[in-house]
Each structure stands twice: as structure tokens, then as C-alpha cells.
Nucleic acid binder design. Sequence first.
DNA 1: GTGAAAGCGCTAACAA
DNA 2: TTGTTAGCGCTTTCAC
Lengths: 357, 357
Amino acid sequence: MEKRRFVVRKGTRKAVVKTPNIRTVAALAKVSIATVSRTINGSSAVRERLSKRVWQAIEQLNYFPNSHARALVSGRSRLFGIIVENITNPFFPELIQSFEEVAVAHGYEILVSSSNSDPAILANCVRRMLERKVEGVAVLSFGAEEPVLDELVHRDIPMVLAEFRLEEAKVSTILLDYSTGIRAAIRHLVELGHSKIAFLAGPHKLHSAITRENDYRSAMKASGVAIEPSWVIECDHTLKGGVVGYGKLQNLSTRPTAILCSNDVTAIGVLRAAYMEGLRVPDDLSVIGLDDIDFAEFTLPPLTTIRLSRFDLAQAAFEALRQQAEEAGNPRMQREFLVSTSLVVRGSTAAPPSGRR
Amino acid sequence: MEKRRFVVRKGTRKAVVKTPNIRTVAALAKVSIATVSRTINGSSAVRERLSKRVWQAIEQLNYFPNSHARALVSGRSRLFGIIVENITNPFFPELIQSFEEVAVAHGYEILVSSSNSDPAILANCVRRMLERKVEGVAVLSFGAEEPVLDELVHRDIPMVLAEFRLEEAKVSTILLDYSTGIRAAIRHLVELGHSKIAFLAGPHKLHSAITRENDYRSAMKASGVAIEPSWVIECDHTLKGGVVGYGKLQNLSTRPTAILCSNDVTAIGVLRAAYMEGLRVPDDLSVIGLDDIDFAEFTLPPLTTIRLSRFDLAQAAFEALRQQAEEAGNPRMQREFLVSTSLVVRGSTAAPPSGRR
DNA sequence: GTGAAAGCGCTAACAA
DNA sequence: TTGTTAGCGCTTTCAC
């Protein structure tokens, strides 16, 4: 191995000093610990003179409060949990990023968990979140994990769920209006001349997958296009799943001229499979995804897709949680948010082969 | 909007019960709280009879310990921080996933932060981690953020750094041996007949980017290929960056026949840009990435790339932290780990046009 | 306005 | 082996 460029720094060894605590600060500022506490928390009315002295001491000691002690005594951890389906699908990191940004901006920390739609893993996550005394949990895994969530409900922890309702006091819901985007997609395809439109669905254990499939069906009806049952195939929202789904379509006697996919990752798998077969997208086959992950713009050809704003979703989820968490004792009724979708036309859709020649 | 399939459940309203604590358990099991504590912590020697009673009570109450109280009194939070460069680059979620798995398996929780190579954001993350009393931090952002890290060093928090050394007692290092993979890549290209090999580097503020670029240079020398300075271009490890980098290459009078990219995301950008220009990969141009993210297998054509195991990296990072954190008072010398790379040949490389015709 | 003091839920000495 | 008790660092009454 080569020599490398390392940043080497010689030991700035300092005698290891005990972490300062509220008492250290109080002593240095010559006030009581109560005053320090009040100052830190911006409590009403600490005399200017004192608070200044306190801040000075804090600065000088480079002090910051111990969040465990705070959480213990106040019962407020300022911690939110977020449970996603699969952190490996780019949709979710982008979502987490947005969620974290708002959370941090409001002084909250987040605990992330990837459930992989596995109830056992999920149960474990929930348990760990409970131990850490999260003040709310955003369940963005779109799955059918109600039983596990009961733990949260019993403990009266605020929750926000994507895609399904729970009739509980502290549980809010985010409704995703796929319908608008999916209808636009089908209309777009029909206008291009397609009538053989397949749908590669997500795993049926996910609420989102079911909803998307239903919306595909009603959009087809709305556009007056017949649905061929063998063209609706359950996949699993993964790259490989897209390849497999495409394979099943390949074996059919009559094949569709367009494929709508339940998410972008599936669509990217389809792109790959079509390429392997030698079909050209969009000339021989049109493909549409759903999500509009960052990658969608960079596939070959660029993916036409239905955009679902991660930012809006994250924003809504945080807002729901914050409201529930911060309204002490109020009637705290559950709220409902709506996040919309829209079609983004790029390069993976065109007129069907027969329609052109 | 349509009717949707919602899972609706009628309020299982229970009187909100106070969360059970160690005293509740002790009372129910008719033992002292010390015994409960010992039982929970698997302490040596609690008589079978008692521990059984305790576990029963725990079960019955659905009790679990309050981690804040535990952390407060024991000084151990069982929390590790992990700082990555950019959670939006699929390499990192995959890395986080692996890291979390090992961590959870060992009873640790993780706090994730995405620094986006911004010192201000990083400083904020570090601060928050300090407040939460993390027992160690894995800095996998590959950046030049030493100043910020001083905070951690001063407080004697175990750390593990990717790609650079710090001469401090509790700081371990993970060395990434890009050299092996990069040499193999260059050799592969040369054997195919290429001699005009460009390099789209990462942002120079990242250690990893510098190292990779250096390794490219020495690999070129080792293979006896001349380096054309204008073919080495600093990009930023993003999709768009790859497109931009390609654009710069496009404007040159003599153009390379192969491009080695500092990471996969850049390579995917290049694939896209080449497609837009009408060049065919690999017939007209060969492209190689670095990382081997899940997507690499699904690009068009499948990307030849240099594999860097996220699992190995995560494993090493966790192990380093765990060892440092758990060896109380030991000499605790810093350790060094090595993670290797290897070439994965797929479809984006072939003989150069001139070499074929 | 400010301080003294009582815990939050738990672990770890120390006693018994 | 088991229990009693003193805090961990902080917030929050309640006096002053």
C-alpha cells in the first residue's frame, strides 16, 4: 500500500476534566442552581444582571445540560421516533432527511428505525423507542402493523400514521392522494395511444401498495380502458422485484405496451429488464414510476413518474407530532393531513409501437 | 377522491395507567428495588426463586426500565453516534443499516447525523450527541472536520474515523484500501486497450476524494499509462456532478475513451450525460464507478465498479467503538482497521472504439 | 426575583 | 443473598 495523506495531530493531552454540571455553573456565577435552570430554559423573569452572569459562566465552562437528567425529571425527552419501511429505498433517506431537518430546527432529536415490514423487527423498534421515552412516533412504513402499535396507543404516545386511520385520541393521519397523480399518468398514457397498460403493484401487506393498486383500477375505469387481470402483478417495491415482475409480463401471449409501477425502484428494475430483453424504452415500451426519487431524473431514459413530495410528507408528519406532543391536556383530537401527487413527464413514455407505425 | 381502504378500529380506551417503574415491580414481586435492578441486569446471584418472581412481575406489568434514569446514574447511555457525509447518497443508508444492525444486536442505540460536509451542521450534530451522552462516535463523513472533533477528543469520547488518523488515546482509524480496487480497475481498462483514462474526482475537501485521486494517479503510473492533467476533474460525488464533469470532458479537443469515477453516483451521472450526447456505453465509452451501491447492478448498462463493503466498514466502525467504550480504564490504545476493495466487472466497460475497428 | 429542597427512576455502595 | 440508602443532574414547587 501507498503512503497516504493523513492528518496527524500530536496529542493535545489535557488533564481529563470532569464534565461541568449545573452546580459548577451556579458556583461560578454565584447564583443558585434554580437560577441557572431558569436562565437556560428562558424562564420568565431572571434579572438581566444574573442571567448575564450565568451565560458567561456557561460559556466559560463550555457547559451544556445533560439531556438524560432533563428527560428524567421533566418527563420530556424531546425525542421523536420515525419508522420507515426500508431505509435502502432512496425514497426513505430523502424523507428522513427532511424530517430530521424540521425536527432539529424545533429542538427535537430523532430515532430512526427501518422496519423492513417485519413485525418482529418493528416490535423491537417500538420497544426501544418506548425505553427512550419518545414523545411521538411517525409510522411511515405503510404496513399493516397495527398490533404492534397498540403498545404505543396504550401508553398514550402521540402517533402519526401514513395511509391509515386509527380511532384514537392521539393518533393523526396523513392521507396520500395518489389518485390525482395516477389518473394523470393513465390519462397521459391513453392520450399517447396506449390501451394495454399493466400495473406492477407493491407487496399487498402494505397499505400504500393496496391504495395505489386501487387507484390504478379506478383511473383505468375513469379513462375507459379495460383492465387485463394478468397484467396486474404483485411485486415487492425493490429493484429485483421490478425485474421479476417484468419477467412475468414477458411470458404472456399478449403483452402490454405500457407499465405503471407502484414505485420508482420497481420502475428502474423494469428499465433494466427491458434493456436486457432488447426492448427500447420508450419506443417499444412506456414506463412510469411513482415517488420521483432523486435517481428518477438520472435513469436511462429519464423516468416519467408520479411525484410524491418527501418534504411535504415529512413536514406533515412532524407537525402532527409536534402539535400532539405540545398541547398539554387539551382535547387533543386527532388531525388529518393530505399530501398530494402529480405527474412528472420525462423520457420513459411515448406512443406505443403500433400507434406510431 | 375515492373511498379508501382504511383500517379503522374503535377506541380501546383504557384508563391511562401510570407507567410502571422499578418500585411498582418490587412491590408486586415483594422484593426490594435493588433485587429488581440486579435481576434486570443479570447480576450474579439473585436466587432463582426471587428472580423468577421478579420476571413474572415485570411481565405482568409490561415493565421496562427508563433508559434516561439508567444513563443518568450509570453514566452509560448505550448510545453511539454515527456521522455520515450525505444520507442521500445510497452508499450511506446501506452503511447505516449495517451499523444499526450490529449496534442493536449488542444492545446499543444509534443517533444518525448527516453532515453534508458542512462544518456548522457538523458542529451542531456533535453538540447534540454530547448532550445525549453518546459513548462513542463513528465519523464516516470522510471530511476535514478535525476542529469540530476536538470537542469530542477533549471530553475523551471514543471515536473511530474513516480515512485519517488522530494521535489520541481513544481514537481508532479505519483505513480504506482503495488502492487494490483502483489498480485492478486501471489494469482492466488497459487490458481492454484503453490508454486515455479520465478521472472524475470527489470534492477535495473530503479525505476519501483525495485518497482516491492519489490512488488513481499511482495506479496509472503502475500500469505505465500517462496522465493527462485536464482529464482529472474535481466533481462533488453527486448525480449532477457527474453530468457536469462529463460536460467538461466533452469540451476537450482530445477526449478520453474511459472514465473512472470517484463514486458510483458520479458514474451514474456520467452514464446519463453520455446517453444524452448519444454516446453508447460501453461501445463508445467505458465507465467505472466506486462503492458498488445496490443501484450499480441496475444501471444501463450495469455498472462496472470498485466494490467497497458497507458491511465490513460498519462492522469495523462498531467494533472499534465497542472496544473503546467497554474497556474501562485499560491502556485503551487506538486501533487500526483495514477495509479492502475489489473490482466488479459488469457491463459498462469494453474495448475502446479505435481498438476495435 | 431568587433560593432551598424534594424528587424523577435507577444503580451501586454498603449493611445486614 | 438481599435490602437500605445515597446520589446521578436536573426541573419545579414553595417559601422568602
